[in-house]
């Protein structure tokens, strides 16, 4: 398969297929051979200690980082092929960042329409209709004319989700979407993500929210030191981890006081 599907993926294979993925920053190899498949409708949560390479893995999927080895296939397109039109692939892959990264000089509505209009060439009316529908979906229909600086962190992150959804992505990548939020704002964002999962979106979620990973995740992947240590059903990996390193990590995050 050489061309990406424009509306729905014609592929019957996995949405993401990662094989032997390596990434080095200079001398330091941060990912040392990752294999991971994500199928349509699946919610895969990636957990692991700080510095284990979770963000790097996620960023290799839409090529914000250029892998130094292995292959990454997204929606049937091998994005590691140097000739690939990555901008086109990216329109099908939404990404949500820890720091929200809204366009600070544009309104909430503009944030959700710019790429629709410029990249997908949608008309202003159509783009606004879609943007407003997605803002309503994340509970922010009434803040369309606000500037990002006027919103709370939780609201900004929900706008960021609406912005990504407005491109009608077939895959959503989340990199610790609630880590920069005040505790009381985390719930709203997780609720939006839960709805998205229930609606059948294919998602890869890097998170420290173990309850979310267990409840919403179909699969949980535990990474440490640049490799996937354990990969299995969410209940099993979090409830009854097989690997010693997974057990030690979960012990630390679930019972930080040593209880």
């Amino acid at each position: 398969m050489t061309t990406p599907a424009t509306t729905t993926p014609a592929t019957t294979g996995p949405v993401v297929r990662i094989a032997g993925l390596r990434k080095a920053f200079g001398e330091r190899e941060v990912l040392t051979g990752i294999d991971l498949d994500v199928h349509a409708g699946e919610v895969v949560c990636v957990i692991g200690p700080s510095g284990s390479g979770k963000s790097t893995l996620l960023r290799c999927v839409n090529l914000l980082e250029q892998p130094t080895g292995g292959t990454v296939e997204v929606l049937g397109v091998e994005v590691t092929d140097p000739d690939v039109d990555i901008d086109r692939v990216r329109t099908h892959v939404g990404m949500v960042f820890q720091q929200f990264n809204l366009f600070a000089h544009r309104t909430v509505l503009d944030n959700c329409t710019i790429a629709q209009r410029q990249v997908l060439k949608r008309s202003r009316d159509e783009a606004e209709r879609i943007a407003r529908a997605n803002l309503a979906r994340v509970g922010l229909a009434d803040r369309a004319d606000a500037h990002p600086g006027q919103l709370s962190g939780g609201q900004q992150q929900r706008v960021a989700i609406a912005r990504a959804l407005s491109m009608d992505p077939q895959l959503m990548l989340f990199d610790e979407p609630t880590s920069a939020l005040d505790p009381e704002l985390v719930g709203d964002v997780l609720a939006v993500m839960r709805d998205l999962a229930d609606a059948g979106m294919t998602m890869i979620v890097v998170t420290h929210e173990m309850a979310f990973a267990r409840d919403v995740g179909d699969r949980v992947v535990f990474m440490d030191g640049g490799v996937v240590v354990e990969d299995g059903p969410a209940d099993q990996v979090i409830g009854a981890p097989r690997e010693e390193r997974t057990q030690a990590f979960l012990q630390r995050v679930l019972h930080p006081t040593g209880a």
Binding site: D87, R88, L102, A160
Partner: peptide, 14 residues
């Protein structure tokens, strides 16, 4: 902020 550039690129902007 560099993050805004990455957000734009992730939306498919050149």
């Amino acid at each position: 902020p560099r993050g805004q550039v990455e957000a734009a690129r992730s939306l498919g902007m050149s």
